[in-house]
Amino acid sequence: MISMDGTTIARGFRSKRHEQAPKDRLPPGQHVTTDFPVLSAGPTPQMKLGDWTFALQLGVSLLGKWNWTEFEALPQTTIKTDIHCVTKWSKLDTTWQGVTFDDLLKAVGLTEPPAPHIMAHCDGGYTTNVPVADLIGGQGMIATRYEGLPIPPAHGGPARLLVPHLYFWKSAKWVRRLRFMEKDQPGFWESFGYHNYGDPWKEQRYDGD
């Protein structure tokens, strides 16, 4: 049976969900999960904190670089937010602690972002692109704690990018470098048919959505 708007009614299919998240918390096509699924394209890197560094780059020039101790000494911010994975699960009220993108800019003495786009580079070769406009104003951080504890490696520890208002593949695990770019370029999943921007509220899952 085809309904008025072209969707197909699946005979006999019914919702089994007893409690639904409020409409303003759950983007279209998502459902709430209480567990925390792990999705990565390769093995989980085993990174020792003593070997970990994090860098900010403009093109090929270095704007700033921190080891773990130095990074931990930067101003810390805690946020409580919902996260939305492109594979359809959403997790509500997750708490993250880390260093905001704004504080990273301040730490390298910048008052303005030097370019409009960034590419996040991660252990294991993963990359993702994010507009700087989506990171400033407290929207993005390098997170190092989840629910008050160090982020487990499978979930991106020691540090992951957190941009919770975009689909969660943009919140790159095992992040080691943010590189400012004058021109936008697709990252890893963005080169494999996933949407370049990834707004869950517009259901921008794949190219052309």
Partner: peptide, 17 residues
């Protein structure tokens, strides 16, 4: 590690990414 491609079936039935 770059030659190992993985897909994890989470409890929520998720797949890549």
């Amino acid at each position: 590690p770059l030659t190992i491609k993985t897909e994890r079936f989470g409890p929520s039935g998720g797949q890549a990414p």
